Simulated assay, not measured.
Amino acid sequence: MMKITKNNIFLGLACSLSILSCAKDNYEKPNASLKGVLVDVATKNPVNGVVGNGNFGNLQFFQMDYGVPNPAAFTTAGFKADGTYANQTLFNGKYKLVPRGPYFYQDTVTVDLKGSMQVDLPVVPFTYPKITVGEITSNSITVKVSAKRNAAAEAIMPQQISAVVALLGTTAGVNYNNYYVVNNNTTNYRYVVNTSAVNNNVIATNEYSYTFKDLKPGTTYFLRGASRVSTNNPSNYYNYSELLTVKTSN
């Protein structure tokens, strides 16, 4: 009969760990990547996103070649400010892509992914927010923000614009959840206009003016407009304007 010693135990553990390590090392690594951009069906322009998914949504992937009738979804890191996305940790295979956010998504995009590919995603944005810059001083920036419904989206489903927003931040990642905060936010760098009771046609003709105060001289700030609808928008997603870079005077 073999005598069991500590050395035998340690040797057995070492062999087991070695086998597990080899098995782990033999797993297939991701060998494909996918990138693209959200594209407005009507204008053919990129749809502005946000860094970090702040109230904007994400892209769902469904891998279709495993023989599962209803495969589970997994998501990427989301869309960047310029509407682009990228996932570099995929395997070759067949995928269905479904973007979720402040837009109607009509066409199912299925991709037979092999290596690196680019696939753009057509969507119909809910709203078109806009922000313009007026007077700039050493410690303030005056802006005008507006929003209008996308006619193509209105044809699909009537939706009420419930908020128009002006945002100021210290980084290019400014969004509804990420903006400049000082004095325990007693100085407001997220200006929100509640438009729930205002007719969309009236909102489209208005420009809401606001002055961001108590800023630092000679400092660069980032500005964006945003707007959202209250109908068929359970996650309260916002559409965003382009990103503006503004520097206060010295």
Rank of each mutant, 00 (worst) to 15 (best):
L113W: 07
K6M: 13
S116H: 10
K3I: 15
A42H: 09
A23L: 15
K3T: 15
N26V: 02
D25H: 12
P69W: 04
G49Y: 00
L215W: 03
T108A: 09
A86T: 06
L167T: 02
V164Y: 03
S33R: 07
S116L: 04
D112M: 05
T205E: 12
Y95C: 04
S116Q: 13
M64K: 12
K144H: 09
V181T: 10
A86N: 12
N183L: 12
A153G: 05
T248C: 12
L38P: 03
T76A: 08
N70Y: 13
I19E: 12
Y237K: 00
Q88L: 14
G57C: 07
Y221K: 03
T245A: 13
A226H: 00
L13F: 13
T195L: 02
N185A: 11
A155F: 07
Q160M: 07
N26Y: 10
M157T: 05
A32F: 13
T245M: 13
Y176S: 04
Q160K: 10
V193E: 14
N150K: 01
G78H: 04
S138D: 10
C15R: 14
G169D: 08
N206C: 06
I161G: 01
Q60C: 10
K29G: 10
Y85H: 03
E154G: 03
T245Y: 09
L59K: 12
Y210G: 03
L223F: 08
S241Y: 03
G78F: 04
S227W: 00
K80H: 14
N45C: 11
N236M: 08
A153F: 09
F222D: 06
L11H: 04
Y103G: 00
S138H: 02
Y103W: 14
T137H: 01
Q63F: 04
Q159P: 06
L59C: 09
L97F: 13
K216H: 12
I136H: 09
F212G: 01
S249N: 14
N139L: 08
Y105W: 10
L20N: 09
T195I: 02
T171V: 09
N239D: 11
Y103N: 02
L17H: 08
N188I: 14
P129R: 00
Q63A: 10
I203G: 01
Y95V: 08
Y221C: 06
P71C: 13
M117I: 09
A197M: 11
T127P: 01
Y105N: 15
F62A: 05
K80P: 02
S138M: 06
Y179H: 11
K3P: 07
N178K: 14
S116T: 15
K94E: 14
K216Y: 07
